[in-house]
Design a protein around this nucleic acid. Structure first.
Length: 217
DNA sequence: CTCCCGATAT
DNA sequence: ATATCAGGAG
């Protein structure tokens, strides 16, 4: 995609969804951080189902430490990778209490020192909690960036760096949300729905299967 | 690179 | 049955 096409790409996504928001449910910065850690290789719907009850009991890292690893496991057993996530969330919460006065750090280099927090999770928190213009390249953005030709790259970091260079100023704040939502509901991994995609004419991907036949009324 | 790992869609 | 889901650690 050239510059003009990229501007058009985001202009359309912005018009279709002027105020995109994460679909993870949370009440404060700490709960957002935990929700994002839990969302690795899991659906937002599945994470929300578990955190609805969890976040009613736990609003602070101190309360998470009090709940304990086994208590947390009972809440998140329906989420994949729950053993490793429970261990990381408790360890992470202990560090926040001990070293950060219970607050969520704002710097990527600090966030990524926390157990269970990598570059993608740090970028989500920086963008969604603190309003930074970061690009959190998850499975959806990686796929959409490569499939469309917007930001091709062999690794998530390569895609992120290409987005840094290519996404125009007015769209930088919300670009990653638009791309995720587009990837989740239209540019899907298994069966992309190109026939109802509003940026299909800007995309290099050519679908192998046509739109499903519509019943004549 | 492998391992972690339940729910859901196809 | 299998691929996929807001990845990260060893």
């Amino acid at each position: 995609m050239n510059k003009t096409q990229i501007f058009e790409f985001f202009s359309r996504l912005a018009e279709a969804n002027p105020a995109p928001r994460t679909e993870l449910e949370y009440g404060n910065d700490y709960q957002l951080l935990i929700a994002v850690v839990l969302s690795a290789q899991a659906t937002d719907v599945g994470v929300n189902k578990a955190t609805r009850a969890l976040f009613r009991e736990v609003e602070t890292p101190a309360q998470m430490v009090a709940l304990g690893e086994e208590g947390l496991k009972q809440h998140i057993k329906t989420i994949g990778l729950y053993n490793a996530k429970a261990k990381n969330v408790i360890a992470l919460s202990e560090i926040l209490v001990r070293d950060f006065d219970g607050e969520v750090p704002r710097e990527r280099d600090v966030l990524t020192t926390l157990p269970g927090v990598g570059r993608k999770t740090a970028n989500v928190v920086m963008n969604t909690a603190f309003g930074e213009e970061t690009f959190a390249v998850d499975t959806h953005i990686f796929r959409v960036g490569n499939r469309t030709g917007l930001a091709p790259g062999k690794t998530p970091l390569a895609v992120e760096q290409k987005l840094e260079k290519r996404v125009p100023g007015p769209f930088r704040r919300d670009a990653h949300h638009w791309l995720i939502l587009h990837g989740r509901y239209v540019c899907k991994a298994r069966k992309p729905e190109c026939w109802r995609c509003i940026v299909a004419d800007l995309c290099r991907y050519k679908p192998k299967t046509p739109a499903p036949a519509t019943k004549a009324g």
